[in-house]
């Protein structure tokens, strides 16, 4: 460890103190304000534009839900990745990291505290966004949109955000500057949101992938895992998603939620551990 002071044992109390500080900082930061605003505005737009009032009440499943799923898979990972990427790198750039680590706290506690604080901040932004969206839908009234669907979707979006926060923190730990970290985060987001799907599309067309392997590939991608989970949980018939969706219905009707949750959990834990290891090996400044 980097300092020689006698320290108390690593404790959850310390983590909680650090998390509160992180949350406090995050709620006052510009990224949080902008993210929340963007999420709320886009959610409103989806609520109002989906079905544009015409299909209202006639869709068997909520087009608003489908639109929100689309929005969430795009925006939430970007929020989570950039938030995570800013965490350690920003402290380092401002010269705060050596100061922080000179306190009687372990690196593990610092990282865990930041992760927890950012998770709470992201949850706040997402839940607020969904809350406003729910109000908008209720105010418009008379849609086929279930309240429970929105609650579910909000919960799953929080899970998606937490699932990708660890990846952002890996980026943050290995980056020396905030700008580099943010750039890497955006690049990673592009990979997750577009490149993997386009790659899957190309390989499906080129190599005639089997339905099972496409399903597996979708589950590995946290965004697709979230999408499958969210559509399924919202009661949208997965045969909308063609043969692979039908396969999911036929063979994984009961396990789909667990598989998707497992995927997101793996993405939350794996990169989190990597971030912790990388952080413990790097110099503070």
């Amino acid at each position: 460890m980097s300092n020689n002071w006698p320290r108390p044992e690593p404790s959850l109390v310390t983590v909680w103190v650090l998390a509160r500080r992180e949350l406090h900082d995050a709620l006052r930061s510009r990224w949080f304000a902008l993210d929340t605003l963007a999420f709320v505005l886009l959610g409103l737009a989806v609520a109002f534009v989906s079905g544009s009032g015409t299909g209202e009440g006639l869709a068997g499943f909520g087009r608003t839900t489908a639109g929100l799923v689309n929005l969430v898979t795009l925006i939430v990972p970007l929020m989570a990745l950039t938030a995570g990427a800013g965490s350690i790198a920003a402290e380092r750039e401002r010269g705060m990291l050596p100061y922080l680590l000179s306190q009687p706290v372990s690196r593990w506690e610092v990282l865990a505290g930041k992760w927890l604080g950012l998770s709470l901040a992201l949850s706040t932004a997402i839940l607020l966004g969904f809350g406003v969206c729910a109000m908008a839908v209720a105010w418009r009234g008379g849609t086929s949109q279930g309240a429970s669907q929105l609650l579910l979707l909000a919960g799953l979006s929080v899970a998606l955000a937490i699932g990708l926060l660890g990846v952002g923190m890996v980026i943050s730990v290995v980056s020396r500057r905030t700008s580099v970290a943010t750039g890497l985060a955006v690049f990673t987001w592009l990979l997750f949101a577009f490149a993997t799907d386009l790659g899957l599309m190309a390989s499906t067309l080129t190599w005639r992938l089997t339905i099972q392997s496409i399903f597996a590939a979708c589950l590995v991608n946290p965004l697709q895992a979230f999408k499958l989970w969210a559509l399924d949980a919202a009661g949208i018939p997965l045969d909308v998603l063609g043969p692979v969706g039908q396969y999911a219905v036929d063979h994984h009707a009961h396990s789909l939620a667990w598989l998707a949750a497992g995927s997101l959990a793996a993405w939350a834990i794996g990169p989190g551990v990597i971030a912790a290891i990388a952080f413990s090996r790097r110099a503070a400044a």
């Binding site: 577009f194 799907d197 599309m201 339905i211 998603l241 692979v244 969706g245």
Partner: peptide, 14 residues
């Protein structure tokens, strides 16, 4: 239409 399996990517940014 060419490859129905691709329908799995509906509702996604791709």
């Amino acid at each position: 239409e060419q490859e129905p399996k691709l329908a799995i990517l509906r509702f996604s940014p791709a």
